[in-house]
Design a protein around this nucleic acid. Sequence first.
RNA 1: GCAGCCGUAGCUCAGUUGGUUAGAGCACCAGAUUGUGGAUCUGGGGGUCCCCCGUUCGAGCCGGGGCGGCUGUACCA
Length: 528
Amino acid sequence: MSKADKIKARAPRGFADRNPADLAATERMLAAIRESYELYGFEGVETPFVEYTDSLGKFLPDQDRPNEGVFSFQDDDEQWLSLRYDLTAPLARYVAENFDALPKPYRSYRSGWVFRNEKPGPGRFRQFMQFDADTVGAASVAADAEICMMAADTMERLGLRGQYVIKVNNRKILDGLMEAIDLGGDDKAAQRLIVLRALDKFDRLGEAGVRALLGEKRVDESGDVTQGAGLLDWQIDRLIWFVTLRSGTGAGALVPETRNNFNPLLEISGHQEPMDMLSAMDAAYGSESQSLKGSQTFSSGIQELKEIGNILASAGYDTKVMMDPSVVRGLEYYTGPVYEAELTFQVQDEDGRPVRFGSVGGGGRYDGLVGRFRSEPVPATGFSIGVSRLLSALQMVKSPIVSGSEKPGPVVVLVMDKDQIAAYQRMVSALRQAGIRAELYLGSSGMKAQMKYADKRQSPCVIIQGSNERERGEVEIKDLIEGAKAAQAIASNEEWKAARPAQFSVAEAKLVEAVREVLARHFPSHFG
RNA sequence: GCAGCCGUAGCUCAGUUGGUUAGAGCACCAGAUUGUGGAUCUGGGGGUCCCCCGUUCGAGCCGGGGCGGCUGUACCA
């Protein structure tokens, strides 16, 4: 077979292999998240990778592009199936299917792979892992406040204290605000969609970019044009005023040194006294304002956020969770409070260029999702950590959280004489029975290659027994970690060869004991 | 999807106005060293120059089309 006929070995784009270090880091992260969720009283549950397409809330696949967004295929009975694209929609199906048996409110967590057929990028994969927790059947915003607190606790348990922020907003406020600036009604639905998408991009595009998208159009650096929402200046001004409340660049500037992020005081022009942010919004866009229409949705959204703020403040979380009016999240199913977990440090790729990472977690209230399967409405709220994205961000900044202690490799017993395999295997078994990772060299190469193999396997030591040692009833133990240190001082190969650093001989009966000593020297936490 | 940039060895890249058999460093393998990781030296394997069509006596280089990668943008239930 010529080379041209061979298949090119490569993983599909957006799909990643995971090496031993990735696996170990993921395990540690999953354990930390699970501990946190368990502590809050959530219980585990698992659903399959594949669901009926209509349960996922996706329209039936387009004939021309059946896999746009989600991976879909047809079953034998011609029903459409899809790989799940998040863990929320499958949970809604699970709850609806098992509704009568589950305690209400139902509080559960689950982790696993989800799939999206999208363009991959840094921290964006077509197969990635999420870890969710949801409370189903609780309409109270106390459930939302708790989710925010748990999100903060979980980030801290992951070792990210001071390096993250949980941002909260309420979709009702955005919806109400749009009503107030004359964007209500069914005929304006398309426009509202564009507005929400534009506001969601504030952190990425900045005020100028968002203004362009709310107005006529935006042109990016490659010259590509994005059609805007076509709003009038007075509408744009009010939207921008609102989403910039957080950063202090808008008409209402934050009073400095406010320790409480969630309910800061504002200096509002036209008002004598500083007001809290939410009252300021009320005053600016309430029913008394002449140019704006009143909105019940807006008021109740404000009220909900105030309640969440009170709960967070009394539990001492108001410095970890902040109000961010530009948080929108996914457009389809969120109905109330929405949350987002973001890392606050800069991430760079290998070439030193800054990498734009999205949020590493998010969630919100989805009161309509379970109700799609049932005749009664079922309120629900939940949070999801993007484990794969978080891992990839932490790896890029070489965080000790994910690069922590490597497990030592196995002790390797070298094969010096092929007719002595049984004797070598006996040594391996003795080590294994003592609980020490060990293996026989199973290749066919000579001693030098076997040493290189042990080196690549991160072996702490190798066992050598040639005919000389065998006659004396002994084995040579070579400490590779100590040897590597000793080798740095040796320049010539002759000297190197003669020195045989960190190598010693013991009676075969003392093999296990001697190996254990070597391991204890290098890995006191494992073998001390 | 749209736009911009880019495709030469496993990796990073050089390659003259279009001119013999396409190079380097790193990595890999072997020897120097019958039984010792590293360093050094010597040697070796490895290429459809992304693919196809065209121009030309002649294409890695020029033209057209495709595919792939990166970045931005859009979408993200």
